[in-house]
Design a protein around this nucleic acid. Sequence first.
RNA 1: GCGGAUGUAGCUCAGCUGGUAGAGCACCGGAUUGUGGCUCCGGUUGUCGCGAGUUCAAGCCUCGUCAUUCGCCCCA
Length: 413
Amino acid sequence: MSSKLQIVKGMRDLSGVEAKSFAHLEDTARQIFGLYGFEELRTPILEFTELFTKGIGQDTDIVGKEMYLVLDRREKSLALRPEGTASVVRHVASQGLMRQKKQVKFFYFGPMFRYERPQKGRFRQFYQIGVESFGNAGPDGDLELFLMLRQYFSAIGLKNVGFQLNSIGCPAPDCRPAFRAKLVGFLSAQKEALCPDCQRRLETNPLRVLDCKNERCIQLTQDAPKSIDSLCGSCKGHHQELLGLLEAHQISYETNNRLVRGLDYYSKTVFEVYSADLGAQSAAGGGGRFDGLFEQFGEEPVPSVGFALGLDRLVMLCPEPPKGQAPVFVIGWEQKAVSLMVAQLREAGIGAEYDPGRASMKSQFKQADRFGGRWTLVLGEEEIRTGQVTLKNMQQGTQTTLSPNEALKLIRA
RNA sequence: GCGGAUGUAGCUCAGCUGGUAGAGCACCGGAUUGUGGCUCCGGUUGUCGCGAGUUCAAGCCUCGUCAUUCGCCCCA
């Protein structure tokens, strides 16, 4: 029972329907994102550690304490990627793609790694499907992502999800910094009443006090200043235009003034895909605009929007994917004849299975039943003598004896 | 890093105030010599997570440890 072979904490094997669900979500994403002109980009799982410290920000938890770090044989510090955006930006910048095209759009999937305490919907190796769109500064760049997500969610049968939307402005002095100052002023006045975590946040990242889950903090910040009221002219215009576009396309969303994204590089639009069915980790995905990220890497600025979905969380919300055709089960006494028949069926594109251990007819039928296939093909002494096969319909319990070719036709029908 | 809950058969779990472990499902066989599902009969399955301690006696009590899980922090 208890085996010594044990999996690493926070990691898991995906098998059965779960593995199928993952594949299905990925396949569907490939197909739909392709319609919007996004191309797949496969980046390495290992990157130089600096890519993330520069990109995500030294002081975030992700970089500060959650990265899996390794030293290679030349003592270079490498990190298992904790997110996907930095790699995509690295690719676009280092290949000079923005000098070749006005717009560049990529999607990616794959495992990400963060050394955190696991809980419902949260793993140390988790899977993301992400999208980045470069070169479109206007709100229709944002809009495109919402449209694409809506179509994707409908394609995978996702229900009970909603968009939450906010704008957190830009680094211009009269925008986020001004808002931040206002907020700090408001919070400092009641610092003592905030929870210990929030008192700490007030110093490190005051915006995050807004999404504290502590009820008292929520109450106290009820009348806190809102970021959308302190936007600069350009950010305000962007936000208003986006709302107008969303309405025109009948995309429903909720405004959430408390929504601030975790990573420093976001600007203007931020959003989350949430569901009440997920437990405490209610976000199935999130994204936003990050117009300043290229500059953070010392590159020419490139307007950028993107999002990432947590596949592990999407799987919890989606119905099981449609089942493929269950295999035909072949049973009989003579091993060689059975395996030849199975081979022939497989070559013909029909899934087939058999029992390699010489079990009784009864037990072979039992196994056939468990496979859940529609047909069982019987190849007994009689059939071998006459060169025919018996095909049994497992749902109806009826069976007929006929030639192998006719059987093929029937199975295919 | 912090808090709570849980580890008993392949799976889901029961096991009273401590007295040497049970059910259902699953699996195997038979009733039915080449016919599954339904029914009936029979059978297999355990270092009670691991290690100490208390006790005449520990699945149960105590301590430690590992793992799982749900939260916090943070995030997808």
